[in-house]
Simulated assay, not measured.
Amino acid sequence: MPATSKAQQKAAGAALAAKRGEAPKFKLKGASKQMEKSMSEDQLEEFASTKRKGLPDKKD
Rank of each mutant, 00 (worst) to 15 (best):
M1V: 08
M1G: 05
M1K: 10
P2Q: 14
P2W: 11
A3N: 05
A3V: 03
A3D: 00
A3P: 02
S5L: 03
S5C: 10
S5H: 06
S5P: 04
K6W: 08
K6E: 12
K6L: 12
Q8H: 13
Q8D: 07
Q8I: 13
Q9P: 02
Q9G: 02
K10F: 12
K10D: 07
A11F: 10
A11P: 04
A11N: 04
A11W: 09
A14M: 15
A15P: 02
A15V: 03
A15D: 01
A15M: 04
L16M: 09
L16R: 07
A17H: 01
A17P: 00
A17L: 10
A17C: 01
A17F: 05
A18D: 00
A18M: 07
A18K: 06
A18L: 03
A18S: 08
K19Y: 00
K19R: 11
K19N: 00
K19M: 03
R20A: 07
R20F: 01
G21E: 06
G21Q: 06
E22Q: 10
E22I: 14
E22F: 11
A23T: 07
A23S: 10
A23Q: 08
A23R: 12
P24F: 09
P24G: 01
K25D: 04
F26C: 02
F26I: 05
K27H: 05
K27Q: 13
K27G: 04
K27W: 13
L28W: 07
L28F: 13
G30V: 09
G30T: 10
G30C: 08
G30L: 09
A31E: 11
A31R: 12
A31M: 14
A31Y: 04
A31T: 14
A31Q: 12
S32I: 08
S32N: 03
S32Q: 15
S32M: 11
S32G: 03
S32F: 08
K33C: 04
K33F: 11
K33S: 09
Q34N: 13
Q34L: 14
Q34R: 15
E36R: 12
K37A: 11
K37M: 07
K37I: 10
K37R: 14
K37H: 03
K37V: 06
S38A: 10
S38P: 00
S38Y: 07
M39E: 04
M39G: 01
S40D: 06
S40M: 02
E41V: 15
Q43S: 09
Q43G: 03
L44S: 00
E45T: 15
E45Y: 05
E45K: 13
E46G: 02
E46A: 14
E46C: 03
E46K: 13
F47I: 11
F47M: 15
A48H: 05
A48M: 02
A48Q: 03
A48T: 06
S49Q: 12
S49P: 00
S49L: 06
S49M: 08
T50D: 00
T50Y: 05
T50F: 05
T50Q: 03
K51N: 10
K51L: 06
K51M: 03
R52W: 08
K53M: 07
L55W: 06
P56D: 03
P56H: 09
P56K: 13
D57F: 07
K58D: 08
K59G: 07
K59S: 11
D60Q: 13
D60N: 09
